[in-house]
């Protein structure tokens, strides 16, 4: 699928964005909104993310930064898995620093591109 068609699949999707760095969070949120995504968040921590999840309808997908100011995002990943919500890790880490059980989950390296997000969360 060409890039444009692929990113078009994002339109109207509800995506939770969890990223502790304000600037990165804002940039990505802007970019997603530009592609017609209904951005849930961004939030910098697990607690905030859980509050958003409980407050409204379940999102279609989630983008999770792994290291949230020293807090690891994995418990949130477990929750999303339990609720059957697709998600992708966004990381500056190499694969091997991720615990075994999360190693095979979809993962994108920062900076993220819309195309990859669409591929993982929608396609």
């Amino acid at each position: 699928m060409p890039d444009a068609a692929l990113t078009a699949t994002l339109r109207g999707r509800r995506i939770l964005l969890v990223e502790d760095d304000y600037m990165m969070a804002q940039d990505l949120a802007n970019e997603l909104q530009g592609a017609g995504v209904d951005v849930l968040g961004p939030v910098p921590d697990i607690r905030g993310a859980l509050a958003l999840l409980d407050a409204g309808p379940a999102p279609d997908g989630a983008i999770l930064d792994i290291n949230l100011g020293g807090e690891m995002v994995y418990p949130l990943a477990d929750t999303l898995q339990a609720r059957d919500i697709r998600f992708v890790f966004a990381t500056g880490y190499e694969g091997w620093s991720i615990p075994e059980r999360y190693r095979n989950l979809p993962r994108l390296e920062k900076p993220l591109g819309l195309r990859q997000i669409a591929e993982v969360l929608v396609a």
Binding site: D21, Y22, M23, M24, Q26, D27, N67, G92, Y93, E94, K110, P111
Partner: peptide
């Protein structure tokens, strides 16, 4: 790696 990626992100911002 984390630091350098983080730094790149901040610079980008």
């Amino acid at each position: 790696q984390h630091r350098s990626r983080n730094l790149v992100g901040v610079v980008k911002g």
